[in-house]
Design a protein around this nucleic acid. Structure first.
Length: 868
RNA sequence: GGGAGCAUAGCUCAGUUGGUUAGAGCACUUGCCCUACAAGCAAGGGGUCACAGGUUCGAGUCCUGUUGUUCCCACCA
């Protein structure tokens, strides 16, 4: 890139692709182990290979890129590892859909054929999202890109599984799990969403054996009756005490089951009698265990009724329900039907109603693994930002249940267990087993089930660095510094990474967890496919540019809070980019070919000193905010400084006076300070100025230089600005257009004020639209309007517009306002408690303020006097 | 049932460990092409910081309660 003329309007499309390619080609994103430098590591949450970039990713990746660019410019050896997730259920669903389109059913092809398709799918679409992430400007080390099912990750998964198994944390057993009949797999508790749906209570009579008496049970799922193992009542329920121990007849089915007493039964709910179906309800399962009840499964994988349901076998659960209710009604067992609303568990992937079901699955015993994960945050090894999310994290871990990790899917990490056909022994091993370790038989078959996706993504922060090998990368870059993710994924993912990491590496996976909210639509609704309200980040980039999108997702947003997405906001961020672009054009016009090198001169005028002071203060604030991950505030500070102080004031001043080296110095440092937020435009402009080094992204991040903080200069410019603003204000009040040049008399007995105003009179004349500026300690200007600001008294003679009566009224109003303010301050200063307890700094401030107001009041009163 | 967030200008949101007169963008009003920028410049109007108490010299900020609202967890008798 060479120096060249800049267009009048910034066009991101001409810039972004070209710059990104250069960055990548030059290898600026690459990180190598270098023990002489301090590492800073972020591992990107891997997007699903089924995914398309959405606003959530855009925000997540922008946050990470800002942090990583900041740290890179600070001199850290920064590594940002990207990658993708195989997303077992989501991808399997896609493959099945693809098959269906060809008229093929999943059971009609072999596992091998299926996997071949899945890999082909991954190859074809898996990189889509990667190219989209690049469009954002993300500076990840693409040479270290990983995939949760690549060789290394697979090795890590096996190592993790076997180690947990050997320590007894993994077991296989018949337990009640959530079953999705559509995906035909088990899913974990956190993968179930509860949705409120309309339903019914069916009140059904269960006759007591050899008696005319009966108990009435209210149920929402009558079809599970076939699996009833008992009725249960509360032992303290007087109504039913006499039935405890007796048998009842299951209607229609005719089977005898006992009435048991159990505290779980709530006397208040329903009829106070509960049917116990251990194979199809988690609570019933527990009750069943306590009373040693038989477990009778009544459904198939696809939620049709099974062989235990007689004539109902083969019917879908809802068809069977209808038929059964009819049957109950016809035979006089149905007492009544009540409409209710209740929460029904649904699959987080396909939204089908989940069937709780007894099943033989693999589990991780969580309790002992959870404890260190709790400790890790409690003792501050890992911190949540904002802190409040640690509460959610604790609550979840403290109430943790065993984790069902087996899935009846093909796409994923197949569980490394081999069953011996001869002796039945189960071989669990890191390597594929060819021979039974017990009987040496070679008749082995591997477990059909695969592992939950989160089982492998839980290892992500360390598996991507080479674990279980002790690679140099793992030794150097691990633990990572910060994880950036949304609050919706704390249970799914964050907790799993923490406990897995602690168990395997003995270290925390990351030092900080920066949590952000959801990106919502302009009405505050969640962006979703079904609502069709999603905004495509790529379209936004196309229209406004990546920098504008990035800035709009960050500015003014605080950690952990949701963000509403408005095109208008992107628009004003685009305008901001354009503002900088034009400021740069101005600098070029004033520096090109003029022997300006951007080195700060020895002697500077007050406005130069002022902008340097303001810049350094801003740099300090921005650095502080970034260290604390307060990206939204940092962006806001940059916006305010660049637009208000640099563009609106400094550039205007610089048209009159000031060293062009300071102008160039300031804009170049502004570009550096802004670079992590808006990487493309800052790089493009920086390249257009004379520069050292190849790229802005590897320049030193500006820090606050205390030597350039200049309190006097700031105070002086405050006076200039105040006078200029007073005049502009008066123009508006009196309807004097800027084109009408006016004479100005500034009265002050402060030599400092006089000095600063006379030295910068050109600036005041230009910016306030004056004919001339006179400064003295005393003026007598008849037929003039008088402005009294915090510093000086100003006379503006304008014959045709001054009206004595109006002037008096205006000044009296002014007097009232000032008086009220003065009273407030004086009251405070009269308060002994304030004087004795407030810090000296505040008291001094108040005194100074009172003095200023008093002087102002004096001047106003005198002016009123003069008008008489 | 348990927990958390939010409530600030017409709208969307900032507001650092409590500190003088509470900010921004958009929208609105008025005037401007002043040779970087009309995707702009200048100026202005608009707020009982949800309500009620409390702590404090001082509360948008801390504490308690109330109301409204959103979300998370638990839960399909």
């Amino acid at each position: 890139m060479e120096e060249k003329e800049l267009n009048k309007v910034y066009n991101p499309k001409d810039v972004e692709g070209r710059i990104y390619e250069t960055w990548q080609k030059k290898g600026y994103f690459r990180a190598e182990v270098n023990k002489s430098k301090k590492p800073f590591t972020i591992v990107m949450p891997p997007p699903n290979i089924t995914g398309r970039l959405h606003m959530g990713h855009a925000m997540d990746d922008t946050m990470q890129d800002i942090i990583i660019r900041f740290k890179r410019m600070q001199g850290y050896n920064t590594l940002w590892v990207p990658g993708t997730d195989h997303a077992s259920i989501a991808t399997e669903v896609k493959i099945c859909e693809q098959l269906q389109k060809e008229g093929v059913n999943k059971d009609e092809i072999t596992r091998e054929e299926f996997l071949k398709r899945a890999w082909a799918w991954k190859e074809e679409y898996g990189e889509n999202i990667v190219s989209q992430i690049k469009k954002l400007g993300s500076s990840c080390d693409w040479s270290k890109q990983r995939f949760t099912m690549d060789e290394g990750c697979t090795k890590a998964v096996r190592e993790f599984f076997v180690r947990l198994y050997e320590k007894g944390f993994i077991y296989k057993g018949e337990k009640l799990i959530n079953w999705c009949p559509k995906c035909r797999t088990s899913i974990s508790d956190s993968e179930v969403n509860f949705e409120e749906k309309d339903g019914n209570f069916w009140y059904i009579k269960y006759k007591i054996e050899n008696s005319d008496e009966y108990l009435i049970v209210a149920t929402t799922r009558p079809e599970t009756m076939f699996g009833d193992a008992a009725l249960a009542v509360n032992p303290n329920d007087g109504r039913y005490k006499k039935f405890i121990g007796k048998n009842v007849v299951v209607p229609v089915v005719g089977r005898l089951i006992p009435v048991v007493a159990d505290d779980y039964v709530d006397i208040e709910v329903g009829t106070g009698v509960l049917k116990i179906t251990p194979a199809h309800d988690p609570n019933d399962f527990e009750v069943g265990l306590r009373h040693d009840l038989p477990i009778l499964n009544v459904m198939n994988d696809d939620a049709t009724m099974n062989e235990n349901t007689g004539e109902y076998e083969g019917l879908d659960r809802y068809v069977a329900r209808k038929k059964l209710v009819k049957n109950l009604e016809n035979n006089g067992y149905l007492v009544k039907i009540k409409d209710i609303k209740h929460n029904v568990g649904t699959c987080y992937r396909c939204s089908s109603v989940v069937e709780p079901r007894i099943s033989n699955q693999w589990f991780v015993r969580m309790k002992d693994l959870a404890q260190p994960a709790i400790e890790c945050v409690k003792n501050g090894t890992t911190s949540f930002i904002p802190e409040r999310f640690s509460k959610i994290y604790y609550h979840w871990l403290e109430n943790i249940k065993d984790w069902c990790i087996s899935r009846q899917l093909w796409w994923g990490h197949r569980i490394p267990a081999w069953y011996c056909d001869d002796c039945g022994h189960m071989n669990v091993s890191r390597e594929d087993v060819k021979k039974c370790e017990k009987c040496s038989s070679e008749n082995l078959c591997q477990e059909e089930d695969t592992l939950d996706t989160w089982f492998s993504s839980g290892l992500w922060p360390f598996s991507v660095l080479g674990w279980p090998e002790k690679t140099p990368e793992f030794e150097y870059f691990y633990p990572t510094d910060v994880l950036v993710t949304g609050y919706d994924i704390i249970f799914f993912w964050v907790v799993k990474m923490v406990f897995s990491s602690l168990a395997m590496t003995k270290r925390e996976p990351f030092k900080n967890v920066l949590i952000h909210g959801l990106v919502r639509d302009s009405q505050g609704r969640k962006m979703s496919k079904s609502l069709g309200n999603g905004v495509d980040p790529l379209e936004v980039i196309e229209k406004y540019g990546a920098d504008a999108l990035r800035f709009s997702l960050i500015m003014g947003n605080s950690p952990g809070n949701d963000l509403r997405f408005f095109n208008e906001k992107v628009e004003f961020c685009r305008n901001f980019a354009n503002k900088i672009w034009n400021a740069a054009r101005f600098v070029h016009m004033n520096t090109d070919g003029k022997n300006v090198n951007g080195e700060l001169p020895e002697n500077m005028c007050v406005t130069d000193k002022w902008i340097l002071s303001r810049f350094n203060k801003t740099a300090k604030e921005v650095n502080d905010c970034l260290e604390k991950f307060e990206l939204g505030v940092a962006a806001q500070k940059l916006y305010d400084f660049i637009w208000d102080e640099f563009c609106d004031w400094y550039i205007e001043f610089s048209k009159i006076s000031g060293d062009k080296n300071v102008l160039l110095w300031t804009i170049k440092n502004i570009l550096a300070l802004l670079h992590p937020f808006m990487p493309f435009i800052t790089e493009e402009i920086w390249q257009s100025f004379p520069h050292e080094g190849e790229t802005l992204m590897l320049c030193k991040y500006p820090k606050c230089d205390e030597n350039l903080i200049d309190k006097n200069a700031e105070e002086s410019v405050k006076i200039l600005v105040s006078v200029i603003k007073s005049v502009r204000n008066m123009r508006r009040e009196k309807n004097v257009p800027h084109s009408k040049k006016i004479a100005l008399y500034v009265e002050t007995d402060n030599l400092g004020y006089e000095d600063i105003l006379s030295k910068n009179s050109d600036a005041v004349v230009k910016l306030a639209g004056l004919k001339n500026l006179s400064i003295s300690h005393k003026f007598d200007v008849p037929q003039s309007t008088t402005i009294i600001n915090d510093f000086v008294k100003i006379y503006v003679p304008i014959d045709d517009i001054v009206n004595r009566a109006d002037e008096t009224i205006r000044l009296q109003k002014e007097r009232e306002n000032t008086l009220t303010q003065l009273e407030q301050v004086e009251n405070r200063l009269k308060d002994d408690k304030f004087i004795s307890r407030a810090p000296q700094k505040i008291i001094d401030g108040a005194r100074e303020n009172a003095e200023t107001l008093r002087r102002k009041l004096e001047k106003i009163e005198q002016s009123i006097e003069d008008l008489k």
